[in-house]
Design a protein around this nucleic acid. Sequence first.
RNA 1: GGUGGGGUGGCAGAGUGGUUGAAUGUACCGGUCUUGAAAACCGGCAGACCCUUUCUAGGGUCUCGAGGGUUCGAAUCCCUCCCCCACCGCCA
Length: 465
Amino acid sequence: MIDLKELRENPDRFRNGVRDKCMDVDIDRLLALDEARRAVLMRQENARAEQNRIGKESGARMGQLKGKLKSASDAEKPQLERELAELEAKPTALKAQVHECEVEMAQIEPQWKALWMQVPQPPAQDVPKGKGSDDNVEVRRWAPPGFDFAKTFAENRGFTPRTHLELVKMHGLVDFERGVKMAGTRHYVMCGLGMRLHQAVLRYAVDFMADQRGFSPMGVPVIVKEECMIGTGFFPAGREQAYHIEESARGSGHDLFLTGTGEVGLMGIHADEIVPAESLPLKYCTVSTCFRREAGAAGKDTAGLYRIHQFDKVEQVVVCRADEQESRAWHAQMIQSVETILQSLGLAYRLLQCCTGDLGVKNEDMIDIESWMPGRGELGRDGAPTGAFGETHSASRLGDFQCRRLNLRYKDETGKLRFAYALNNTVIASPRVLIPILEMHQQADGSIRVPEVLRPYMGGIAQIG
RNA sequence: GGUGGGGUGGCAGAGUGGUUGAAUGUACCGGUCUUGAAAACCGGCAGACCCUUUCUAGGGUCUCGAGGGUUCGAAUCCCUCCCCCACCGCCA
């Protein structure tokens, strides 16, 4: 969430942020609610202060009188009662005042809070303006030696590619029918070498981050309380995307939600903490199963491993000092890690600077990495797909938006408490990344060459089929 | 699932209706002492929010698991919920 003080001082920054992100949050209404809230708060606090003052002044006397009253004779009672009533008159009136304020507050506060939570982090200055993914700007692209983006797959490799769907069927790597039988649409069963490849990719990515980049691997909950979802910024906006375990409906416990990314568990670790400044930057990675309802995506990418309800992902996060330059440096490093991995897997990819309209509520800067998938895209003259980029990674800078929500702080050199800056990036998401791996490494006969870096994780197997 | 015991400041641990945001210990920070350290002694040591401000402070409200209630006044009494611990049962 955003800093309310900053909103009051510089509302235009947030008005523009909302506009540039093509969102609809009424900043002026929030400002009005905020002002109303503070007015009520002030009245309430003044009444309370007076109440407390009187309590200190004559509280003891009141207690005394009450005590006396119990053992008082009938003759003494009226006098005592009178004094007591006199003493109680003022605080009783104040009590009513406080209650009045509470009632008003109960009106204002929920609206104020709800609206506040919706205000997005404004995009960084240098993020290109745009309406949606069509306005994203390509930063650079890379292809393995011998692969030229200007040519078709057939021209590059000398044969027409099979789609990953054909390849997994051919080698029995994935069983969609039985996945659907058990769990419905967008579910699948990973089989044999398919499962091994899936695991190999994940293990390789975790080991890379731990060994080559010094990130601490963590195992985190994938079913979490609502606070974690709100704290990490996925709720309220993304509520429809998350599976909801409604324990409350059973009359016990609290509701839980399945996380759609390891980011939730990783960032939740230090929620409500003041971490030692020396411990920054925190560099964590995790491999976790991710669950997504894909609400609103009906009919989109229905076939294959591209858009599924359950997958596994290695995620990396960095929590660093509240310093934009440092955050940018980490962003670059996290992206570089991914590029190293993709290159070692022999995949072709491009980096896209996402435009303002393609950003979510919580990020101020986002780079998407799309891998080339030869089996995707329009059909060519020969009836085979012409290939297309498909998003496999997303690297975000969140400023202090997420840590503010999570209440994750550190003490800076001057002793001031500050909300840390957060970043996150996919390391590898599988099985989606198996699509480019299978399609890029297929041979003319349909067999698949296993990228060398994965072989140690597959018992040395170099080829599938 | 059953029974019992608990949730108070970084930790430990008092406190059962009225200057208790909270004793005490300990940890931590600063100082004195010391060649240095330890010990001892002195001082400091929660956070959020609101208001004012000569931009450095000052004032106020809230917070003792969470929420609600009783009361002039709640850490303390009542209700609901959550969590933790121990033992038993069940179980991957």
